[in-house]
Design a protein around this nucleic acid. Structure first.
Lengths: 327, 327
DNA sequence: ACCGGTATCGATACCGTTACCGATACCACA
DNA sequence: TGTGGTATCGGTAACGGTATCGATACCGGT
């Protein structure tokens, strides 16, 4: 009881060799029904728990899937993780998470650490990594999936959306609603490359219409609804005549909406607020915002499926959707 | 390049034995400065990456910390995870997450799976587990920390808050504000034992004042702001004269607030809304709600520290705080 | 009765690392 | 010069499994 039961113990109790016990427990075909039953019973009897470390070392294969995300508190990544977890569930694969905090140095560390486990698959966020990380990823042998973003060159498999296109589409949507004086709000405490791509696409589409962003309100606080509220207050104070405000995500946009509600500014009549992600809570907001619904859960599912299938060069571009939430 | 470099390769290049190489890389004291340098240089030169599987198998120790949470999309757990991650960072420990979806059967599976890795530490959510899980936990040898809840009997270490007390305190707060007709809103799609404890405490304190909950609005949808909005609508339709509504969490409460705002109901003048957790976004809501701020990040930090320190029977009860957010 | 084939099993050699203990060298000191 | 102690190293045996291949038994067909 004090010492864990080992395969040898199971084999001894079952009266077979270690190999037969191993095969029986793994469901290998070359075991007689009799031995199989005996082994399973013996294992149950002494409470045997397989040791995946030893198995991995011996077989030179692991059942690990490394998942590297920038943040856990961001619902978007949490939902992607959920997609991954629910897809690999029951496959015998084990997800291992790493968090980079949007920091390239941390990302490199996390990646190195992840790779040291020699995972069967690796799912990393984004296409943009520090050069050293790219080298690591290229050298490594396992199934690689880069998620969330398709704007750039993938090293391995790839699932996501085009943030550049998403930004452009939002610009066109706002323009179509008649907006001409448009503000932009973001947070730069962390360097969010995908938000930057959206901004680029947004700007490009405005320029195609002969327009520029009227004002940009940036802060180096973490992105959150309170930050969105504070920044919107400041932005609208300096530019009371904006037709629309594009936020780098729904949290900021919700904060912006809260500011408007508190000030009695009518949304979207007085000003259109645009976010990104289409988070669930946005659906219940008391006024309507426009946002881009991202299929993050599906991205997680597809990425996990790619790992399961051992794909190597697959690339799936998902199409986000402009939606009007709340009201 | 195709085959990973092993410790033997490092040793060969450095001109020492495997043992010396191993010791040098681990920073063991019984290595001369000369050998140490040579080994480190050799390792860097051939790009050696240590294999934690082999190390763990050989040393019978792992650097793994298993973390079992009910959900990843719930910000509360994500923030606790953040606390854990930031605390064990740099200690050489590796967090491994498991998600139970509030399902006891899943919890047992996840736990079994977690334990099979023989982690150095295990952090699980709550004090209430299926009986089989409790047995597993009691038998296992590693540092165990049960987090979030202190209402009950801990198996190992324990850090959290008393949800019963939190519920009672909220009841007293609402009573002190003059509320007499009080509604309660929750979601039961998942069985949230801690929410139940809060409700018990809440009810108890009301009874102490000779009162009962006026109406309970339950739904079996997942807990979210949209659910909160829908349920509040229904509840207020049937009971338009409520003084206050207690929600099982801030998401629902925010949804409730959105309903009131959309209906032009004044909060908190017309009705007091009470949530739980004190999420960051609640701070920016355009009207004031009352909630219980929970120290979930700190809980994660303390739990991780307990694992690092190898504590066995420590129990830390943190004190939540009633706060007024938004407005 | 002999043969080839299939089903079932076991012995052995690892996987890459660390624990353990013995070996060696070198030093100060008697 | 011998002796004991310390610092540094290496050989060997694990750790708990799996891959591989050879051994055995048993089958049907001729």
């Amino acid at each position: 009881m004090t010492q864990k039961a080992t395969l040898a113990d199971v084999a001894a109790v079952a009266g077979v060799s270690k190999m037969t016990a191993s095969r029986a427990l793994r469901g290998a075909p070359e075991v007689s029904q009799l031995s199989r039953d005996r082994v399973q019973q013996a294992a149950a009897q002494i409470g045997y728990v397989a040791n995946p470390l030893a198995a991995s070392l011996s077989s030179k294969r692991t059942q690990l899937v490394g998942v590297v995300v920038p943040s856990l508190t961001n619902t978007v990544f949490a939902e992607m993780l959920t997609g991954i977890v629910e897809t690999i569930e029951g496959s015998g694969l084990q997800p291992v998470f790493g968090v980079t905090n949007y920091n390239p140095d941390t990302e490199l560390d996390v990646l190195r650490n992840m790779l040291s486990w020699r995972p069967a698959g690796l799912i990393v966020t984004g296409l943009d990594h520090p050069e050293a990380a790219k080298i690591l990823l290229r050298q490594s042998e396992q199934t690689l999936v880069q998620v969330m973003d398709v704007d750039g060159t993938a090293i391995g498999n790839c699932v996501g959306i085009s943030h550049t296109q998403a930004g452009a589409e939002m610009a066109r949507t706002l323009l179509a609603s008649g907006a001409r004086k448009i503000g932009y709000v973001n947070c730069t405490q962390i360097f969010d490359i995908r938000a930057t791509k959206r901004l680029d696409g947004f700007r490009g589409a405005l320029r195609d219409a002969g327009l520029e962003i009227t004002a940009i309100q940036t802060s180096d606080t973490p992105s959150s609804a309170p930050a969105g509220r504070a920044q919107t207050r400041q932005l609208m104070q300096e530019h009371p005549d904006l037709d629309a405000i594009y936020y780098s995500n729904d949290d900021l946009a919700a904060g912006g909406l809260f500011h408007c509600l508190a000030q009695g500014i009518c949304v979207p009549k007085g000003v259109i607020l645009a976010g990104f992600n289409g988070l669930e809570f946005s659906e219940s907001l008391p006024a309507q915002i426009v946002t881009t619904r991202t299929p993050r859960r599906e991205i997680g599912q597809i990425a996990a499926q790619m790992v399961l299938d051992g794909d190597t060069d697959k690339c799936v571009q998902l199409m986000p959707q402009i939606v009007y939430l709340g009201g």
